[in-house]
Design a protein around this nucleic acid. Structure first.
Lengths: 212, 212
DNA sequence: TAGATTGTTAATCGATTAACAATC
DNA sequence: TAGATTGTTAATCGATTAACAATC
């Protein structure tokens, strides 16, 4: 839970919400928007939105007018790095892996999955979501040759750490982990967990609260 | 981001990690465990683990010994409500929905998906992961009859809010939302978002940082 | 007894909220 | 000009870390 060079993780997590909201507004032809309006529509407090936008906006908002929608979109995209495409590989082309492979929305976030890997001979050689599945043994070579920095892990938890090791050895620096296990990586790499169990815990606790 | 009746959300999110870790230890025949060992294995600080366990443990840890593994497991499960099974329905039996329907791990977290719904005639009547898919029109009746409190939304974002309304009208109090949109619910209901875009934003930002 | 590990209280750090002056 | 909305500074709140006495 460390901070991100002066930027709060909480803020970074809200930015994609702002982004998709602002894109709708842009589509509707709205040129300027106030933090008050945004906060109302997104169920957030106005002060929080104001603070967040202040952090990422390259120009100041105008009193009595708000922020320029188009400009905000560009600023958020560049702040998050969504404007420059990053190649990624995925390991584990099973059910969950296939969903991610066929999800076309990642390019919006600058993520481009170039290849998938598996160790199951039945899957190797096939295509999933238009992306070819290779033998896991071929990962290091491809990752090095294309200098890929991002790896997505959708394998069972038993093999997650060994896949993680293969990835970091091959030069991958950021891992998006869907396996329910704590991964150890070298200091020059980062892990981000997609943790359904943690989510369910929060949901379960919230439900308990609201049922009282 | 409000707190959960005195318990921090951050702590609640860590608890499932502790839980799966402790289950492995139990399987290995380990009876007691110290917060120091746990912290090392889980890449957390010892003080944080100590504080977390203090909040949920029904009995005190023993100096020089640590906590009783079996007892901790029970305490965490009951704290999170994982020990009493809760029925749920899922709407949107497409790709992502099917993954969730065939995932057998939810029962560990006390979640039991009893039925799925969709509006696509091609899917209605079929089974996915052993769970039958019904016409969405049948949701209110079934939810009321079985007093189901949890709804999972895996539909495209365009229809997410209307599905959400149908759910809350039928008496659902907690929604696990996989659609990338902010849902509005009545005061007596809660939403928890599974937000891939937010995750990707954090990953992207972390990667930027580590590449510098 | 000595060492490890706990529980408790205080300090720090980060994120959110509040207050208010500045300005279009 | 008056009102809306911004930017800035201070206050609060929550989560994490530090320090230390208690105890098995």
């Amino acid at each position: 839970m460390s901070s991100l060079k002066g930027f709060s993780i909480a803020c970074v997590q809200r930015l994609p919400n702002y982004l998709s909201y602002l894109k709708i507004k842009r589509y509707q032809g709205i040129e300027n928007i106030s933090t008050v309006t945004m906060a109302n529509d997104l169920n957030l407090t106005q002060i929080l939105v104001k603070k967040d936008l202040q952090q990422v906006s390259s120009i100041e908002g105008k009193p009595n007018v708000g922020f320029c929608v188009k400009r905000l979109i560009k600023d958020i995209e560049s702040f998050l790095g969504f404007d420059n495409t990053k190649d990624a590989v995925l390991v584990g082309a099973g059910k969950l892996g296939s969903v991610l492979l066929s999800y076309k929305g990642f390019e919006k976030y600058g993520l481009n999955i170039v290849a998938a890997f598996d160790n199951n001979p039945d899957i190797i050689g096939a295509e999933s979501g238009g992306i070819k599945v290779f033998d896991i043994a071929k990962l290091p070579n491809l990752v090095r040759r294309m200098s890929i920095h991002i790896g997505i892990i959708t394998v069972p938890k038993q093999s997650a750490q060994s896949i993680c090791d293969i990835m970091t050895d091959a030069g991958i620096r950021a891992i998006w982990n869907f396996a329910p296990i704590v991964l150890n990586v070298p200091d020059n790499a980062v892990v981000h967990n997609e943790d359904l169990a943690a989510s369910l815990a929060v949901l379960s606790k919230k439900l308990k609260e609201v049922l009282d």
